[in-house]
Simulated scan of single mutants.
Amino acid sequence: MSAAEVLAHAEELAGLLADTVDGGASVGFLAPLDRASAAAWWEGRAAGVSAGHLAVWVARGADRVLGTIGLAFADKPNSRHRAELVKLMVHPDGRGRGVGRALLTTAERAAAEAGVTLLHLDTETGSPAETLYLSAGWTPLGAIPDYATTPTGVLRPTTIFYKRVGAAAAAP
């Protein structure tokens, strides 16, 4: 999505974010998440997209956005070979249908095409997202206890993952 598209679709993306949080996904927000706050958060992402620090993709169903994923590019000269995978969200109606895997594959390919060779992310330990990352070839580095809270405010550990992509993935 371009920055203009993020702004134009902020309300729809807000619905996805709020429904994802209300569905129990730990993506950095507490439930219930009101749509105005969710829209403001998305509107705030447009500047990063415009500056080239953030890339955002969406998966659409017939009548709604079913998921989204972001890739946050490093801004320091010594770290431009890596990026962070952020905010993989799949609407509860889209779970178990390959939406998350398709978004993940899209972000990985785009990262490699941009010259990124190392991706990293964090996710709630024991979550369905963790299962997805493991099955997609991501390597768990370790877990940090009490790193984040669930949408209901319960402290949970977070697992850090990494994956080599592009030329680095092909190297022996």
Rank of each mutant, 00 (worst) to 15 (best):
T152R: 15
I69C: 03
L85V: 15
A18V: 03
A129N: 06
A111N: 09
R82E: 14
R164S: 07
T105I: 03
M1N: 05
R109L: 12
P92W: 14
A25L: 05
L104G: 03
A39P: 00
G166T: 08
V165K: 00
S135P: 06
V49T: 04
I144H: 05
W41A: 08
K163S: 03
T159F: 01
G24Y: 08
M1G: 13
A10C: 05
T152P: 01
L17N: 06
L66K: 01
P32Q: 11
I69T: 14
V58L: 06
I144T: 15
A25Y: 04
A170P: 03
A169R: 15
G48I: 08
A148T: 10
N78W: 03
L66N: 03
A168Y: 11
S135M: 04
A83Q: 08
L132C: 04
G166R: 02
G96A: 08
S135H: 12
A107N: 11
Y162N: 07
A129K: 06
A10H: 06
T150G: 05
Y147R: 13
E113Y: 09
L33D: 10
R64M: 13
P128V: 00
T20K: 09
H81E: 06
R82A: 12
G166V: 11
A4S: 13
A74L: 03
E124M: 15
A129Y: 01
L13Q: 04
A114T: 14
A46N: 05
